[in-house]
């Protein structure tokens, strides 16, 4: 283990009591995993929540580096900006980054456009994740999910137990009392850990601002070429996505509230190009951040189904 790099220079000090409490709780959860598991890993999705999670990991183990690698399950359809951000950030925090692609899925030509969002997510994200967890034998995996995101997440444990084969059974979850997390697993069983469980989207942005955490520029509004498809604004990040008859690209001021595969992530029209503006816009907003996620809209219980299958 070697020493961590120096703290970020552009942090603004002065956290509210509320954010301080959330920060301490997350740090405690991360240390618990590092102490109790043999081979933990941190899932890194490049988004704002992952950014906060990685920053908290740097704090939790300082002056040591986080004693686990980052894992990015790459569907090969992320925005190019995200991949650039991923590589600079991993270097910035001095952590080891593992990138995994489901090569079988790739070989079968699975993609978000012609395969559909649900199959693409199942194969390239959920299956890809399970492949990577099995390949490296990780027994605990951090995820950046928050309970305020979605209904079935509201009941998720902080330490979420998965039986062999990564199966999540909502009826067989361990009660979590006090701060006494049950970290015991048998061979083949794993734990998914959600250190940001009690954070809200507003907390994430306020903390990002207070700590000067770097985020992907796509969160900030800028003039970008977008095409309107099924009522959603999609940005063609490369020419793998072709225009349908009658579609034209036009440049609009947009930003993204949630980042994933570019054909599945809708932009929102916005002029918010600073963190202050984003926070103000969010307070006034009348829609949830997952609205722009095409994978959630099938039916309102779809997240629970995906989770049973092993999605984060």
């Amino acid at each position: 283990m070697s020493t961590a790099p120096a703290p970020l220079p552009n942090a603004r000090r002065g956290l509210s009591d509320h954010l301080k409490r959330l920060e301490s709780e997350s740090i405690e959860i991360m240390r618990e995993v590092a102490a109790a598991f043999d081979n933990p890993v941190m899932l890194y999705s490049i988004g704002k929540d992952s950014g906060v999670m990685l920053h908290l990991a740097a704090k939790a183990f300082y002056p040591s580096k986080p004693p686990f690698p980052l894992l990015h399950v790459d569907t090969t359809w992320k925005f190019a900006d995200m991949i650039r951000h991923r590589d600079t950030v991993a270097e910035r925090y001095g952590v080891n980054l593992i990138v995994h692609v489901n090569e079988e899925g790739l070989a079968k030509g699975i993609n978000p456009i012609s395969s559909g969002s649900s199959l693409h997510t199942q194969v390239m994200k959920t299956e890809g994740l399970k492949q990577a967890l099995d390949k490296y034998g990780f027994d605990a995996a951090f995820g950046g999910a928050r309970r305020d995101e979605e209904k079935s997440r509201a009941k998720e444990r902080i330490f979420s137990f998965r039986s062999a084969g990564h199966v999540w059974d909502p009826r067989n979850q361990r009660p979590e009392l006090w701060r006494l997390y049950n970290t015991r697993v048998n061979k083949g069983e794993t734990i998914r850990v959600f250190p940001l469980s009690n954070w809200t989207e507003l907390d994430i942005w306020e903390y990002t601002r207070a700590e000067g955490i770097p985020v992907v520029p796509l969160y900030f509004a800028a003039p970008r070429p977008v095409v309107s498809r099924d009522g959603l604004l999609i940005m063609r990040d490369d020419d793998r996505m072709s225009l349908l008859p009658g579609e034209t690209e036009e440049t609009r001021w947009v930003r993204f509230r949630s980042l994933g595969c570019y054909p599945l992530s809708a932009a929102v029209e916005s002029r918010a190009d600073t963190l202050d503006d984003i926070i103000d816009e969010m307070r006034a907003s009348r829609s949830s951040e997952r609205e722009g996620r095409l994978i959630d809209t099938d039916e309102s219980a779809s997240m629970e189904k995906k989770k049973r299958e092993g999605y984060f």
């Binding site: 283990m1 070697s2 020493t3 961590a4 405690e28 240390r31 618990e32 590092a34 102490a35 183990f61 002056p63 040591s64 580096k65």
Partner: peptide, 10 residues
């Protein structure tokens, strides 16, 4: 919770 030992000096 955890013994923090990045190197021999700390």
């Amino acid at each position: 919770q955890w013994v923090n030992r990045p190197n021999l000096d700390f």
